[in-house]
Design a protein around this nucleic acid. Sequence first.
RNA 1: GCCGGUGUAGCUCAGUGGUAGAGCAACGGUUUCGUAAACCGUAGGUCGUCGGUUCAAUCCCGACCACCGGCUCCA
Length: 706
Amino acid sequence: MLLNFPSLFPMQNDESQPDESQPQPPNPGPSPELVNRYGLVPPDFEAAKTDVQRKTLDQRAQIDELARLRHSCAHILATAVLRLWPDALLDIGPWTEDGFYYDFDLKHRFSPDDFPKIEEEMRKVTKENQVFEKSIKTREEALAYFAGKGQKFKVERLGDIPEGEVISFYQNGEFVDLCAGPHVMRTGNVKPSGIKMLKVASAYFRGNEKNPQLQRLYGTAFKNKEELDKWVTMQEEAKKRDHRKIGAEMGLFAFDAEYVGPGLALWLPKGTVLVEELERLAKETEFQAGYVRVKTPHLAKEKMYKTSGHLPYYADSMFPPMELGELDGEERQQLEAEISNLRAKEAMHSFELSQLHPVNDIARFLSVSDSLKSVRQDLEKPKMPVTRYYLKAMNCPHHHRIFAAEPRSYRDLPLRLAEYGTNYRYEQSGELFGLMRVRALNMNDAHLYCTAEQFAEEFRAVNDMYLKYFKIFGIEKYQMRFSTHDPARLGQKFVNEPELWKKTEDMVRQVLIDSGINYVEVANEAAFYGPKIDVQVWSAIGREFTIATNQVDFAVPARFGLTYRDRDNTDKTPLCIHRAPLGTHERFIGFLIEHYAGNFPLWLAPEQVRVLTLNDDAALVDYAKAITAELRANFVRVEGDYGADPVKAKISDAEHARVHTMLVIGGRDMEAGAVSVRLHGKGNIGAKPKAEAIADILASIRERRA
RNA sequence: GCCGGUGUAGCUCAGUGGUAGAGCAACGGUUUCGUAAACCGUAGGUCGUCGGUUCAAUCCCGACCACCGGCUCCA
């Protein structure tokens, strides 16, 4: 019950982000004797949930100047906090992409009101120009130091340092911290005007929700005030691109937590335009790639998800089932038999009871009376077996049943079933986030059933489809995350098919290399049924999202007993590729809104063209209406604004509504058979013959120009 | 789900222990103008919901709901 090594002291990154590094030997942690000697309370912390890899000392030595500065700031922050709240317990203070943080445990609840005080104290620390002094300690010395101060989180962290790695302390002024560095030379190297405290948050110790929650103070630092101000301005600009803000401004979508429910997006007419344009793009692309479309219901019986393996493991992420009292034939017979059996017993017992004397036959009377009571209770118990239906959280099982609905031959493969399927996932309340994380989502889904021989070609084609889409949308910053299995966990976390794992992973890797794609490989993160590729993108407000996924599945088709008749007249199980290049409408459109800042290309723009007249002169309005009608006849989303308001006001309205193309028409244009073209955000680009302007618009839409 | 914060008109925000305002948007008029905002007027709110304290609550207290910032999670 004391210490259970090494699980209590797993490998863990003590100061920073996960990073690629060499696998580390298991960490021994402090010995139980040591812990005893210093009178520590046996730690009851949970391990980190995912293996986080420590940075090697070499990697630390190579970090850039800014990270060094920020990491030093984390120490300065902790120095200041300890001066203000001496009882604070320390955890860790790494640098991050945007700044730094430090985790504390203390009674006082931090609030942004504390920031001026904290920043002031940090400024003092920089003015004191303390040296960051490094010293090497033995494990025992380090443990004694932190145990003596009651710094229990630090004691835990000590256990993360692998045997053989030096244990170093850094001291600035009175503040001493376990730290592998590196730092700037002196606190005076940090310009106080370049520091800013950002937010207070909470974080579980070691990222495990079973551990205590610490208070995390986020800050950022730059080498001077100018750089800091620049960053602050950029953050403010990014906030204006927030899809939640633009979505409301443009009338794209809405949430109605009161009547519809949290996380359930309503697509307004203008947002629906985006949905349908994306679907059109997907349908065209998939048609050309040889996909066929299917339609499936939004729910299925419990058996479906028992078979697929999603229950009970994913039940928490699914909406609770609907329970129906309907029985099928066999169940009904069973139930009826059971009930008539109970009725018979009831009759028997009551007859016997009526024959017994309550006093003379007291023992028997009581016994029968008890039996009767119990039978009657059983009869009252609504033991009606129910049929459970679940809203589908994924489409694959339905597609598998479509595969199973008809006999399949190798000649039918590859079979590519595509559907914009609606899925329902019961995301935790704190996880909902605008359109990016919702509870009802429309997935650009398809399942490709193929033979092992066809696999590489199919996978390559899917990959090409991703690249095609990225080009259309001008998505340049993305990363493909290739998740593979861990051979040590075959048969546990991953299906025990070592050869298939190796074969498919090799094929996937080769496709990635051949395509010259930017990717990272992460071990141990594959789906249980096969390796996968996730595409990560970064939204304008800096959040990272998985926007698309592509997974290999060589397990679930077998669970459903899917087979095809092969050339040699035997039945074989197909491989399955799950793919969703456009992810879900919700997340993809959320991303596109931020990507384009609401300024969509013409083919996507909810209002593509607005025709504005200079005045409401009848002849002019007729001319304008004819243009509007011609565009509309060609399926252009066009509106007219023919009133008497000043043209400046009309233009302002159209610009604010982010109308892509404005056709401004006055007497001069009418006489010349022309229109003046103005593009949103780009201003007036001059007059053009009417026919030419219309042809341009149609071509831009047809070609889905950027 | 957890920690913290927020909740006033469609939007952005004022405001007070004695039942509420502004600008923009909307609506009705007027305005006939060449590339980002013409003028006048009208209407609009159970101050998130429920409970408590009080003579009196939008304001103070509590619970709940939703949203926001994180954490955890994300098939």
